[in-house]
Nucleic acid binder design. Structure first.
Lengths: 240, 240
DNA sequence: TGCCGTATGTTGGCTGCTGCACAGACTCCG
DNA sequence: CGGAGTCTGTGCAGCAGCCAACATACGGCA
């Protein structure tokens, strides 16, 4: 995860969509303060109670935030992709993680140290405004997710999750095992196996040994509950 | 809900515990900017998409924030009691509610207008720090709640919820119907009826027609899942 | 070639919660 | 006093997801 490159290469790898909401001048200021890193599957970027050493803006990587519960698998309550940032709590003046931060999608990301973030926040009011709004979106999405897990069945939730991953990663194929999907939805792998099997029969997706391909996105949107779209609209309405 | 009183009477009614974390001088400055209101059961203090007209610091009232889901009862995802504040998103520069805000426990509260809050935030850096930390605690508690609803059964979750209400209200008896508890946990009233019946048999609680009395708090703590305590520790660790 | 680890598919019994329906009890009110 | 509204207790069929166990398939490696 430490193979660094110059920020100049960002142009060829795409960029972080959250930062895209900044005006060009501000964005370039932030980008200049970042370094590019390759994140490998399984890398641990933070542990509960530990101080944060870096904040991350994923480009085509995905980072999950997991909460531990006694006698259960860890639950991946949120994920951070190119639409987000890992370490927002620093903007609130809190410098310790409270969740496990694990890379669940290998790829590139931008990162900076907390001290650098603090400096940028002071220099760029627009960055602060952006991160505040992002924090608000996270809270709204979390409440929606809570309602969704309370009421909706595994299959419709799975469809929503796949759509969200599809948005984050920006490609039709991505690596995601059934076990991991089970951790994300808080259900056993068997439940994922069944639901995903049905989707595969319906030609909505194809997967094999951890590589998922979205075949029919409109069909998948049809199979998902409204919660996915609500989450998207929240993001677009406040940040887009 | 519009029977106003002078802030001077706060002394006799107790106060908001979140504001207690401020130093005396700052706290009095904030209190002087507030007015005292009586909130009645069922009062609606905010609707999704509407602008916020007041922020509230409950004293012995409880305000629920509910999310609507198609084909389901509203789910009370969070509640705000004397340990919290309704309208924190203003501190992030967001001025619209995104949830239904309904009074579920009648009582008194302090309130101020958004413009007043903005003024106080500018004048008192400590208030800003406090609200930022509170926002972070809310997020952490929400992730814990998500894990809890994913994994834990109704009875242990009910115990935790009763304990939290007990903390918030500060008295052993409070008004809370089974229907409302069902909305809070996202289950049918029958589920609450069963679980509460067992607690009543075990002499942990007594209730009758919406009035719940905590008889054996240690016993109830024993019956609850660890999530309740984790939520408390989060609050105490960051704000206490 | 054979072995091991990982990922996926399937089965059967069990439990907890759901949906629906109804009955008893208390309160307010005309 | 009687009726309407609210709150609570119960009963039963149905199902979604749980637990445990086992079978298959693929890839890497010695």
């Amino acid at each position: 995860m430490d193979s660094l490159r110059q920020p100049a290469v960002i142009a060829e790898t795409g960029t972080n969509r959250l930062l895209l909401a900044l005006q060009l001048e501000d964005r370039e200021h932030v980008l200049a303060a970042c370094e590019v890193v390759e994140l490998a599957f399984g890398d641990v970027l933070g542990e509960p109670g530990r101080g944060r050493t870096q904040v991350y803006f994923p480009i085509d990587s995905v980072i999950s935030e997991l909460v531990s519960v006694r006698d259960h698998e860890n639950l991946a309550v949120t994920y951070v992709g190119s639409e987000g940032m890992l370490g927002v709590e620093l903007a609130l003046g809190v410098s310790t993680c409270h969740l496990h931060n694990v890379v669940h999608g290998a790829g590139t990301a931008l990162r900076m140290r907390p001290a650098t973030l603090y400096r940028e926040l002071k220099l760029l009011p627009a960055l602060q405004t952006l991160l505040f709004r992002y924090i608000h979106v996270l809270r709204a999405q979390l409440t929606q997710a809570l309602a969704c897990t309370s009421f909706h069945a595994v299959d419709v939730r799975l469809a929503g999750r796949l759509l969200a991953m599809h948005d984050s990663i920006g490609e039709d194929s991505f690596h995601l095992t059934q076990k991991l999907l089970g951790q994300m939805l808080g259900v056993r792998r068997v439940g994922i196996s069944n639901a995903a099997g049905v989707f595969q029969e319906q030609q909505l997706i194809y997967y094999s040994r951890g590589l998922i391909t979205i075949l029919d996105r409109p069909g998948l949107e049809n199979a998902a509950c409204g919660c996915y779209q609500i989450g998207q609209d929240l993001y677009d309405g406040i940040l887009g």
